[in-house]
Design a protein around this nucleic acid. Structure first.
Lengths: 190, 190, 190, 190
DNA sequence: CATGAATGAGTTTTCATTCAT
DNA sequence: TATGAATGAAAACTCATTCAT
């Protein structure tokens, strides 16, 4: 499959994300995706093998995107709190700006579309963050507990806030963003 | 005459939760629910008008359940940290033990099954927790910021941890549970 | 099947006729019949082998009824016009008063419920009328043409009038009834 | 691109009429219609919203057709008997040649598919015939009675004859057709 | 390549019939 | 007997996928 119009793929992804956010994975049909992406159903099959392929490929694009954004401008030799702040902030911004992707990924994890090995592979992509947490513990900046919980806690401080901000249509100011990070940091720090 | 077997409704709910957890809202069919609940498909329609009704009703049952459990043994005149600890713990336990309900609710929020007014009504059910947070701010136990973010942060410290514990099949000891609460508390406290 | 409550059968027939008139043979379900007859669906199966049996038996009851009513007070040795008038009048009255039966019979004729041999047997039940028409031709009271058409014409002069009277909720006076017979008679007479 | 095959609608109508004639409205299923029309069941839903729509639309097509055919070649300034003869003949021919349509319309009138307002609208379409009868009364060609009954009588002289001719597989010669009109005329004339 | 009509397998829903009470 | 819940086969309808244009 060597499609001419690379832009069409983006349209399909965009349409899918919009629909999943609005109606869930359960709600998307090839027809609805085609309509939202402003093309014929048949055209979808020129660019994707089948429905599963759309979801599977989009899943990987989203994961890829996240991993990339999370570590943008990351300088491992920066002071610890600063380094963590950057990543926390990167993640928060990305989630805010691409909330539909978060929803999509979330739903994929509870669907037959994504299998177990894939989930494990995804987990690996966030190893650098795991390592940063490990460093924090060694430098006695963070509480001395299994990194697993520290990481979960940190992600929770982001995910839930984003989710509720979007659900309840709440704007978050830069100042408030900072205070949210402070909560996270105070929670994690030794 | 054979009376209506009210137990069947519980069987259907249980089956639905199990299936949604395993395959997502997208994955359930009436046939699969009937099979999992060990009854004929036609029987489903004796107890529920249609597929939507199963999901809609189950949604409300789950919400009801949560709200009830959250404030079990709650004593409003207890010392602040103790009061918050109890509720945090109640929520955490409930989420752990009824993870399938959390997944289900999560998926419902991004589905055509649950409409906007319903979401608002649900939010209301957790007002008592909002009030407890308000009290914490007045008593200067908690950081001075919009309760909305404090609440989100607190819920995040629970939800994400539960989710990851279940996903990655991680056991959490009582001691670790306590440390997780400490992270939450340190994050929120003034 | 030796049912105790003979009245129940009548209830079922009455319910069926009412429903067929309102919604056609297509519209009746065992549940709707049971509800209309004020009994449980299971009870229907005590009195009738199955759905077909209800329709089949009712069909025969209706046919029987018609045939009986048509020739009530019939005196074969009466003057010709008088004899024909009586039967015409009997049929007209019966159709008017039991319009639902006419509708039911009509629909049965175009349904898989009634087979070809049955239709032929039914035709036979109206032989006395055919004979009266034959007599009319011999006595040169009626037009000299195949009795088949004379009979059809006569029945048409009744059926259509009844149908339209009911459809459009039109009352017919005794005088007008007489004039309708006059049309029929003028049409048939030599 | 494959354009919408408008011919398919005609195929569906034809199939429906055939099936209703043979088995009644009760007997048609979407599958049977699709098979008879030689297409997949899914295709039916491209051209019609649902089963009701097939019946509803076909109903209107049939009514339209009838109304149109009835007045073919009609010359209002022709001598009265001649004018009536033409219309009687048009109706008779149409009914004979499209008996399935008559059966279908008949069944529709006793079905949940066609509502009361529709029935009234249909009645209106035959006003021109009503007017012709009115003219007959003014010119003292017809009996002096409510046109309603004259019209019903006339239609009955056609419908019943056609019905029986078809049911009993009876051929009707041109001469016999003429005699049937004579019966009708003798019945109506002053 | 692009389209949307056509397909038919799969899903939701209905309903005749059975069965436990 | 009478009831209405339970059943599952069949009907209505949807939708991923193919195909003719």
């Amino acid at each position: 499959m060597k499609p001419r119009d690379e832009n069409k793929i983006a349209q399909v992804y965009k349409a899918t994300l919009k629909l999943v956010k609005a109606r869930g994975l359960a709600g998307i049909t090839m027809q609805s995706v085609a309509k939202e992406a402003e093309m014929a159903t048949g055209t979808l099959y020129i660019y994707f093998k089948n429905k599963d392929a759309i979801i599977f490929n989009l899943f990987h694009v989203c994961v890829q995107n996240s991993a990339q954004v999370f570590f943008r401008n990351y300088n491992p030799s920066a002071p610890y709190k600063e380094a963590l702040h950057l990543i926390w902030y990167n993640i928060m911004r990305h989630r805010m700006e691409h909330f539909d992707e978060s929803v999509f990924l979330e739903q994929c994890f509870h669907s037959p579309f994504i299998d177990e090995p894939t989930k494990v592979r995804v987990k690996k992509m966030f190893d650098p963050l795991r390592e940063l947490i490990e460093r924090g513990k060694q430098e006695q900046e963070l509480k001395d507990m299994d990194s697993f919980w520290l990481l979960s806690f940190m992600m929770g401080s982001i995910n839930e806030v984003v989710k509720r901000a979007v659900y309840f249509n709440k704007k978050i100011s830069d100042e408030m963003l900072e205070m949210n990070f402070m909560m996270c940091w105070d929670g994690m720090k030794a």
